Amino acid sequence: MSFEDLLRLLHVLGAAVLFGTGAGIAFFMVMAQRSRDPHIIAHVAGIVVIADTVFTATAVLLQPLTGYGLARAIGWPLTEGWIVLSLALYVFAGLFWLPVVWIQIRLRDLAKQALAEKTPLPPAFDKLYRIWFIFGFPAFAAVIAIFWLMLTKPDITLF
């Protein structure tokens, strides 16, 4: 396996981890929230926070490194339109992902508090959950667009 092949493999695996972990986290958080059970929500949100830390954060850090290495190995200039647009979409997705991580931690803590106090979930939980849910759509759309750009490498003139 060449160095280029290794970089390509790592880059594709990182993209799969980003998308797959995001989709899995979204599914399990939605299902937990639908239960309205603070015990289930606290448990699932706790696992989600760990998964985001272990998998998503690691992939988020490695994707630009493997992408840069791959571009250099293949000889693509970083000013290629599809690469610039991919990077812009990556930052865009990150701007939605960072608050979502904080919201997941807060949702977990609010569910733990409701569980400890034997009370229903507070209104703040529902408000934060709605924001969390809405923020997922532009982030996922950006990641799908990045996949498309990586696969098709369209001739885009930006400058």
Rank of each mutant, 00 (worst) to 15 (best):
G81C: 09
I74C: 02
A32F: 06
P138S: 05
Q104P: 05
I50K: 15
Q104V: 04
G81I: 10
A88V: 13
I103P: 01
Q113C: 01
V17H: 06
M31F: 15
V48K: 02
A73E: 07
V17R: 04
F137S: 00
A42P: 14
L110Y: 03
I131N: 01
I83H: 03
L98P: 05
I40S: 03
P120L: 10
I25D: 06
D109T: 00
Q63W: 04
L87Y: 08
L128D: 04
A26V: 12
I146P: 09
A73W: 09
G22E: 06
S2T: 02
A145D: 15
P120K: 03
A32Y: 06
A57N: 11
L121D: 00
I146C: 12
I131H: 02
S86M: 14
Q33D: 02
F96Y: 03
W82N: 04
F137Y: 03
S86W: 15
K118Y: 12
T66K: 00
L61Q: 01
V17F: 10
L85M: 11
D126S: 08
L95I: 11
G14E: 05
P64C: 00
F137C: 02
M1N: 11
K153A: 03
F28I: 15
L95N: 05
I105L: 14
L70A: 12
L95K: 10
V91P: 06
A124C: 04
A111D: 00
T21A: 15
A26R: 07
P64N: 02
L62Y: 09
A16T: 03
L107G: 05
A142I: 02
A142D: 06
Q63K: 03
K127N: 12
F3M: 15
A16C: 08
D5S: 11
S35P: 06
I134G: 09
T119E: 02
H11T: 09
G75A: 08
